[in-house]
């Protein structure tokens, strides 16, 4: 294959990354505004996350640890998430030839989680370490749900590639998988009631507590982008018909983004506003029961 055949793939990847980078802070800002309204507050302007990131990026680079994990963790965290944004479909479109399948995609996001946990352990602070171990535990609870619900689509689409999964026919199993994904979305994006890793009032930010300046900006940016990616993946894989009827790719991408905002306002933002934080053991129980539902959906998909 020649390079020119890869051009659509590269183009989509670049567009996906740029979109995740540039739009994700706005998503965060809009959700913050919603929370403010629910809390009878005026709230910061929706552009506040951009200003936060710019301010942090311009700050002096202070580090409490000289370990390579602490040094390279934040860029690695952001990079893993951006690559994940690059290899996933965009606007319901997956150009051929694809360079990655969902296994790679899930691996990249897991890499991001592990990096965040590693960052927590590397800084040597007890808060960070506690947050890091919580991050690992939460990951062990959330990843099976993610993997099993995507596997249902893979089974229905007869392929582990995004292209195949986009073609998966709608059925009982895929609807069940979509529901478990939606119910676990709050866990994936680590928002209340699942902000257990950071738990400001218990661990003053957990793995983030020892970060500052540009490194903190990278991690925040990655967290915003992660929220965008998980929501975008739901829209494209589980409700692809909301995008597939749009003939123009650019418009499909815009619709994709609009859906992500709607999903975050209606689900993530509201759930985070009307709940307290769960304890780790309660969150793990929740994750395990969702994984059980996803497993049943998978078995059903395999049999029927």
């Amino acid at each position: 294959m020649t390079l020119s055949q890869y051009l659509p793939t590269i183009g989509t990847a670049v567009a996906g990354m740029v979109l995740a980078l540039l739009v994700a802070p706005l998503l965060e800002g809009v959700v913050r505004k919603l929370r403010a309204i629910i809390q009878s507050r005026q709230g910061p302007p929706v552009t506040q996350p951009y200003l936060d990131l710019l301010k942090l990026l311009a700050k002096e680079d202070l580090r409490v640890s000289v370990s390579p994990v602490a040094t390279w963790g934040p860029p690695l965290f952001l990079a893993a998430i951006l690559v994940a944004a690059g290899v996933m479909p965009l606007g319901g479109i997956m150009p051929e030839p694809a360079v990655a399948d969902i296994v790679v995609f899930i691996g990249l996001l897991a890499l991001a989680n592990i990096t965040l946990a590693g960052l927590g352990f590397a800084t040597g602070s007890a808060f960070s370490s506690l947050g890091a171990s919580r991050e690992v535990m939460l990951m062990l609870a959330a990843e099976p749900v993610l993997f099993l619900s995507l596997l249902v689509l893979a089974l229905k689409g007869q392929s582990l590639t995004f292209t195949g999964m986009l073609q998966a026919p709608v059925g009982v199993a895929t609807i069940a998988a979509a529901l478990t994904y939606l119910l676990a979305l709050q866990m994936y994006v680590a928002k209340i009631p699942f902000d257990i890793t950071e738990a400001e009032t218990e661990l003053i930010g957990g793995p983030l507590s020892e970060l500052s300046g540009p490194r903190l900006a990278m991690v925040y940016w990655g967290i915003y982008a992660k929220q965008f990616i998980y929501s975008s993946l739901f829209v494209q894989l589980f409700v692809p018909w909301t995008l597939s009827f749009i003939p123009w790719p650019l418009l499909a991408v815009l619709a994709n983004v609009a859906w992500v905002f709607a999903l975050n306002l209606v689900v993530v933002g509201i759930v985070a506003s009307v709940n307290p934080r769960l304890r780790l053991d309660q969150a793990l129980r929740y994750g395990v029961s969702l994984a059980a539902v996803a497993a049943m959906a998978l078995i059903y998909a395999a049999i029927v």
Partner: peptide, 16 residues
């Protein structure tokens, strides 16, 4: 108390 367990909406509303 609400803030301690991460329930900031209740926190803001009671303080209002």
């Amino acid at each position: 108390a609400a803030h301690i367990i991460g329930f900031d909406t209740l926190f803001m509303q009671t303080w209002r």
